[in-house]
């Protein structure tokens, strides 16, 4: 059902194809050229043209140097934060949606809006008190602290999507479970969650990507190398070594971008469906 546009004579078709190809090549050109720099030694990088092909193969040396400069912990931290926080968030959000839609909590609309309101305001609106709160409670610069925040900030969107899903589940399913003597907890885990596998996986993907790519909250809520997430580590590395060791910063950025890029390529179809769910907001 795609919108076929216009006549398709051979010449026009070829012209379209060629211009699309040129456009796409132009789009990736800056980064494609930059990748060459990730193979060079720092001396080669600063003494030869960036457009010159690498004379040596130092990609792994560059990555190893970046790893020694704090990328290793950033990578591991963000992997932990992304997996743990998105899984907890999706479970809590699904429970809330289940409570609102399927168990019909009194004033369901109030609870829906209360949770959803967390996503309406721009991040700037809670940065400073959050920072103070974290200092006061000892959550500042701890893994538990940043995971708790990532859980909180990803809950509203997940709850919104899960609510939409639970509205479509047939009520006969729930009645049948009740007749079989299942309590609400069993119904939730054995019947609802398995049915919701597709949206659950999609949400974990979206939220993992968001957490991995976050810079702002990592900057505000963490400080030490052993806690800070990958984007903070990258930004810090660029600030310190950007001028003296370009190749390792470029290599580190490429490696740091790989997980979300690979996730997208592997699970493209899910992602495109996700866009229509939230229309791309955050």
């Amino acid at each position: 059902m795609s919108a076929e546009i216009g006549e398709t004579t051979g010449v026009v078709r070829e012209a379209r194809f060629t211009s699309a190809l040129i456009l796409t090549v132009f789009w990736v050109l800056p980064i494609a050229l930059l990748i060459m720099s990730a193979f060079k030694t720092p001396i080669e990088f600063s003494s030869t043209s960036t457009l010159a092909l690498p004379q040596s193969f130092h990609l792994f040396d560059n990555i190893a140097r970046a790893w020694a400069k704090g990328m290793a912990s950033g990578f591991v931290n963000s992997a932990i934060y992304g997996v743990v926080a998105s899984v907890i968030s999706v479970i809590l959000a699904a429970m809330a949606a289940y409570g609102i839609v399927r168990l019909r909590i009194p004033q369901g609309m109030f609870w829906f809006l209360l949770i959803y309101s967390g996503t309406i305001f721009p991040f700037q609106m809670y940065l400073i008190p959050l920072f103070n709160l974290y200092l006061d409670t000892g959550l500042y610069d701890t893994r538990i602290g940043i995971i708790a925040f990532y859980v909180a900030i990803t809950i509203p969107f997940c709850m919104f999507v899960m609510r939409g899903f639970f509205l479509t589940v047939s009520w006969q399913v729930q009645e049948a479970a009740a007749l079989d003597g299942a309590n609400s907890w069993q119904t939730f885990w054995r019947i609802m969650m398995p049915m919701a596998r597709a949206p659950l996986i999609l949400l974990i993907l979206i939220q993992f990507t968001w957490i991995w790519n976050d810079l702002l909250f990592g900057l505000v809520l963490t400080k030490s190398e052993s806690v800070r997430p990958i984007m903070v580590a990258l930004a810090g590395m660029q600030g310190v070594y950007g001028a003296s060791d370009g190749p390792s910063v470029i290599a580190a950025t490429l490696v740091g971008s790989a997980p979300t890029l690979i996730l997208f390529l592997a699970l493209q179809r899910y992602f495109v469906r996700g866009l229509t769910l939230g229309m791309g907001e955050r």
């Binding site: 790519n213 810079l215 950007g242 740091g256």
Partner: peptide, 10 residues
């Protein structure tokens, strides 16, 4: 699919 921070650094 990559972060704004990574794009900015590159």
């Amino acid at each position: 699919t990559i972060s704004a921070a990574a794009a900015g650094i590159l």
